[in-house]
Amino acid sequence: MSLHEDAVLVLKAYQDQPELRDVYLEHLEAHPDGMYKPCTAGHVTASALVVDPSRGRVLLTLHRKLGMWLQMGGHCEAGDATLTEAALREAREESGIESGLSLLPGGPVRLDRHPIPSPCNWHLDVQYAAVAPPEAVAAISDESLDLRWFGYDEVAAVADDSVVRLVEAVRARL
C-alpha cells in the first residue's frame, strides 16, 4: 500500500470534522502527488503534539522559519509508509526524544488546513498526539529555535488558535 492509499484510508475512517475531511479526500483524489511538498496545489503533512499526561504538559517547538510555537510536524517523505509513521518520525526528529514516544490510539486527533507561502499554497495537516514517557529528555533540532514544555493552561499565551484547539482535542481524548 502506498502512503497516498494509507492517507485515504485514515481520512475515510476519521469521523470528526467531516467537511474538512472531505476537502482532504478531494485533494488526494485530484492529486496523486498530494502527499508531498512538490504538489503546488498543497500537500498533506503529518504532525504530533508531544504530551506528558502525568505532568499535564505539552512539548512545543519554536519553529525556526515561522517563529511560532507549534507541535512537532512536517512534510511526508518517500520513506514514510503510513501517516502514523510520518507523524511519529517528525515527533522524534523535532523533539529529540529518541525512544519511548507512542501515538495515542484512535488515529488522528484533528485536521488543520492552513495557507502557506506560494508556490505550495496549502498544508493539509493530519494531527496526532504522541505520549512521552515521564523520563523523556527533549533536545532541540536544527528546525527549532527553542523547545519547551508548557502546562496545558499555558499554551494559549504562547501559541496560535490551531495549537490551542489541538491541545484541547488531545486532552479530551486522554
Rank of each mutant, 00 (worst) to 15 (best):
I140F: 00
L101A: 09
E143Q: 11
E94M: 05
L104K: 03
R171S: 06
L11K: 12
T61C: 07
H43Y: 15
E29N: 12
E143V: 04
S144K: 01
V170G: 10
A136P: 01
H43A: 08
G107D: 10
L111Y: 05
S2T: 15
T61W: 00
D153H: 15
V44W: 03
V164L: 06
E85W: 01
L104V: 05
V167I: 13
V155E: 11
R89W: 13
H4F: 02
S99M: 05
T61V: 10
A138L: 01
G100C: 06
G96T: 00
A139K: 00
L145K: 14
G67D: 15
D146M: 07
L49V: 09
L25M: 12
K12G: 00
L66A: 14
A41E: 15
E26L: 14
S118L: 11
H114P: 02
M72W: 02
D125Y: 03
M35R: 07
L103R: 06
Q15S: 13
S47R: 09
A46E: 03
E154K: 10
D16T: 07
S162P: 02
L20D: 15
L60R: 09
E154S: 13
E29D: 09
S2R: 13
L20E: 15
R64H: 09
L111D: 09
I97Q: 01
A138G: 04
L103V: 11
M1E: 11
H123T: 05
A7Q: 04
P108W: 02
V10A: 10
Q17C: 09
E29I: 06
D112V: 01
D112E: 07
H4D: 00
V58F: 09
A46K: 07
V109A: 04
P53L: 14
L20K: 15
E77Q: 12
A13E: 12
D153P: 00
E98W: 02
V109T: 11
A46T: 06
L83E: 00
E98Q: 07
V23M: 08
L60F: 12
A138P: 00
L103Y: 10
T82L: 02
L9M: 08
H75I: 05
G107I: 14
S118E: 15
P117Q: 06
D112R: 04
S141G: 12
A87I: 04
R165P: 01
